[in-house]
Design a protein around this nucleic acid. Structure first.
Length: 498
DNA sequence: TGAAATGTTGGGGCG
DNA sequence: ACGCCCCAACATTTC
């Protein structure tokens, strides 16, 4: 942690500053890079770079940009209160970070690690450049419970199956306790720097039209909003989580995913605060809920572990036998899926929730993914790209791993023949149709019996609910029973392949 | 963290 | 009383 003892070449000046480069860790609590900078006793310049990436490099979607704006706004306010305003720059990090370090005559640059393949390459280059120039460069774990290289098999390899991964990760013991937020940050002088960008000039928010109303209603980006959400969930949601997490019509999940993606909250904070809650309550039911929840945080680590060890899985099937699968190109069907106009109410409800709020309930994510890949036979990459563009919690590792999981081609994946039935899922998990009625209002007056399969209702029932199939709501774009059989037939073509 | 097809069991109606 | 059939309910297998 002590810069001067670690780096003989660090700037001689006692007051040479440390640059803390914020990325997907937009918080001040439990921020190892910031804490290390404070430990050095040097002044600090907090930096965020809106990075320009090469085409195809997984650019942020519009919903994520909306979130980023508000999260940066919140972080900037917090840092200003602590005494060290956030410096904003736009461009190539490979240029900006070494340039700023030089202009500041910085002793060091600290950051928390990220795991997207392009980001690992960028960070490695920057670290090498800085060290060549005699500037200390250190990276920390602010994003995962444990690093992908820390959870190893007995043979020293890495896990491709979740359950042994999770057992091994738990056997490592508690991750380090979260670091308290600082009480103040000594600011570096920015006399020699070009001025910080103005967040508003980045134009991350939608204007004509302003489609973000649903997002504003659903979310409070930023560290404070994240903590409130976690507190509320640990207080009220967690005991019933194992049951209610499956019911999309009620708020049974934590809804922490976007906060976690942007690092407004660390998984280590979640781990320790959740277990603290277990200890103070002494309730076995609550403990059961907490572990069901922490297991999901474990899936997040597992997905990052997979991506770290197989970076090509962002675009290629993890199981290469699926390379021979006879996918279809069907732009009309893809569009119907994206717009929530497939004629299957539960699928359409999910796609419309996504479009309006930048979020979708997890069970419905599995359903709509199964529908795209298996009922429509459209490649999972098309669905992954849509989710990445529309989700506020879009996270490369989780998105890619979960799409491959559903498609059956992933690591420890659902078997391909596990095909969700949109009607049965509705009857099981949305029995009163609350979720469908909320997001597909044109079906709201249908009775429960018909809400998940309007095409089975008689003419009188449809008329009374003011539903006219093909006009107010589409006919199903495929017949599920037939589509299921076609998917199973297609699967036979790759089943035996190595 | 599936669904459908197929198999098994047991109660009740009935001759 | 008995055997037979039907079928719902549940279990197992298959995709």
């Amino acid at each position: 942690m002590n810069v001067r003892s670690e780096t003989a070449t660090a700037a001689a000046r006692e007051d040479a500053p440390v640059l803390v480069w914020f990325r997907n860790d937009l918080r001040v609590g439990d921020h190892p890079a910031l804490a290390a900078a404070l430990d050095s006793g040097r002044p600090v310049l907090p930096l965020y770079i809106l990075e320009e990436q090469a085409p195809g490099d997984c650019a942020l979607g519009a919903a994520s940009l909306w979130w980023l704006h508000h999260s940066l706004d919140a972080l900037a306010g917090r840092l200003a209160d602590l005494g060290a305003p956030l410096h904003l720059r736009r461009g190539r990090a490979e240029d900006i970070v070494p340039d700023l370090a030089e202009r500041l005559d910085a002793a060091a640059v600290f950051w928390n690690r990220r795991y997207e393949p392009w980001a690992i390459a960028t960070d490695r280059d920057i670290k090498a450049t800085l060290r060549d120039r005699g500037v200390a460069a250190e990276s920390y774990n602010g994003t995962l419970l444990h690093e992908p290289w820390e959870v190893k098999t007995k043979q020293g390899g890495w896990y491709g199956v979740f359950t042994p991964f999770w057992k091994a990760e738990c056997a490592l013991g508690d991750p380090p306790a979260p670091i308290d937020p600082p009480r103040g940050i000594p600011a570096a002088s920015i006399a020699g720097l070009p001025p910080s960008d103005d967040l508003a000039d980045w134009a991350l928010l939608p204007t004509r039209p302003d489609w973000a109303g649903g997002l504003r209603a659903a979310w409070t980006p930023g560290e404070a909003g994240a903590r409130d959400r976690l507190s509320a969930f640990l207080e009220d949601g967690v005991p019933d989580y194992p049951e209610t997490r499956n019911i999309p019509g009620i708020e049974g999940t934590s809804r922490l995913s976007p906060h976690l993606h942007f690092g407004e909250l660390s998984p280590r904070q979640i781990w320790h605060w959740a277990l603290e809650r277990v200890r103070e309550s002494g309730s076995g039911k609550l403990e059961r809920g907490v572990w069901a929840f922490l297991r999901e945080i474990g899936w997040r680590d597992f997905n990052h572990n997979l991506l770290f060890h197989t970076p090509e899985m962002t675009h290629k099937n993890y199981q290469s036998k699926f390379d021979a699968f006879p996918w279809r190109e069907d732009e009309a069907a893809l569009r119907a899926w994206q717009q929530g106009m497939t004629g299957y109410p539960l699928v359409d409800a999910g796609m419309r929730e996504l479009w309006e709020t930048g979020y979708m309930h997890n069970r419905i994510r599995m359903l709509v993914a199964s529908f795209l890949v298996k009922d429509l036979l459209i490649p999972w990459q098309r669905g992954e790209a849509w989710f990445r563009d529309t989700l506020v919690d879009a996270d490369l590792a989780n998105n890619v791993a979960n799409w491959q999981w559903t498609a059956g081609c992933g690591a420890d994946a659902a078997p391909y023949f596990r095909i969700f039935n949109p009607v049965t899922q509705g009857e099981k998990f949305d029995p009163d149709g609350a979720y469908v009625r909320r997001w597909v209002p044109e079906l709201a007056d249908l009775p429960n019996k018909a809400i998940h399969a309007p095409w089975t209702a008689d003419a009188q029932t449809l008329a009374r609910a003011k539903v006219e199939l093909g006009r107010t709501y589409p006919h199903p774009i495929v017949d599920h029973k037939r589509a299921r059989q076609l998917a199973l037939d297609a699967y036979q073509e790759v089943k035996g392949a190595a």
